[in-house]
């Protein structure tokens, strides 16, 4: 068919006009698939031949000493950092290495940063509004209206994260823990297929930690969740499957008990302690 015919065809919409399809093909198993990924900064290999698979609906914890490459791994998945080698697939259809951050985000990968980043000048309500899954192009955004459905959804999330009373306050005045919660709430608004959560309980009280654990385990099944965390108690309380990273590659994988009895894991953690002591 000629280009002109294609242009004048009335019964189909052009690719660039169709909203980003968030159809993730998981019929063949994993939702996230990383193979032989390597990243180096000036010769230093932050990630070295990393292989990682996350199944649909899984809750996975990733642990590892400082500099093991946990944050860099998240950067790669979300498109912030490009690997030098390797491949990263979301489902079996989307090659993440060919996409930029917004495209990846609209595919359904949400990320919570290590340091909570919310929009401090906007209110809690508006933070959630912006995060909501919607048509995020310019004109629809300019003419967007708050429908009852949208408001209900925001209210629902506000309820979940316990910030209903603070809905019209600027996010800047929230406490550290509340900001963490708000950020998780923003992730929920995105309705992502895969959630990347970087140190969700840093700076939280015991009670807040418990609620976070509840929330994350509640999400698993519907969504896939990857949690990077230092707090071993927290990891033990939520994890079914744990991956240990060391020097940019996977050192061990298994249940928490299997992993913590693995001699190489013990050595890495004790070795790291030695270095710190020296």
């Amino acid at each position: 068919m000629s280009f002109f015919q294609a242009l004048t065809e009335r019964d189909r919409v052009f690719d660039f006009m169709t909203p980003q399809a968030s159809t993730v093909d998981v019929r063949h198993g994993p939702i996230l698939y990383m193979e032989d990924v390597t990243v180096s900064f000036d010769g230093f290999k932050a990630i070295n031949k990393l292989n990682l698979t996350i199944d649909d609906g899984e809750l996975r914890c990733i642990i590892g000493p400082n500099g093991a490459g946990k944050t860099t791994m998240m950067d790669i998945i979300t498109g912030k950092t490009r690997p030098n080698e390797g491949s990263v697939w979301f489902g079996s259809r989307h090659n993440l290495l060919h996409m930029n951050e917004p495209e990846i985000a609209s595919l359904g990968i949400g990320r919570k940063f290590q340091k909570p980043t919310v929009f401090e000048a906007l209110s809690v309500f508006e933070n959630l509004e912006l995060a909501m899954a919607a048509d995020k192009r310019i004109i629809p955004t300019l003419t967007a209206r708050l429908t009852g459905e949208v408001k209900d959804r925001i209210d629902e999330v506000l309820e979940t994260i316990g910030l209903t009373a603070l809905r019209y306050q600027p996010a800047g005045i929230l406490s550290h823990g509340q900001k963490q919660w708000l950020e998780i709430g923003m992730l929920l608004m995105q309705r992502p297929r895969l959630l990347l959560v970087d140190e969700p309980v840093a700076g939280m009280t015991e009670q807040e930690m418990e609620r976070t654990a509840e929330l994350l385990t509640g999400l698993a099944g519907k969504q896939s969740v990857v949690v990077v965390e230092h707090d071993m108690g927290f990891v033990r309380s939520i994890a079914r499957q744990v991956t240990v990273l060391h020097q940019g590659s996977v050192l061990a994988e298994g249940t928490m008990d299997q992993v913590s009895s693995d001699p190489s894991v013990v050595e890495v953690y004790l070795g790291a302690d030695d270095e710190e002591a020296a």
Binding site: N100, L130, K136
Partner: peptide, 19 residues
């Protein structure tokens, strides 16, 4: 509000899916 979000945390806005 997307503008203000961009002003204060550009990277975060990208991760929410805004170009």
């Amino acid at each position: 509000r997307v503008c203000v979000a961009t002003r204060d945390a550009e990277a975060r806005t990208r991760f929410l899916g805004y170009r």
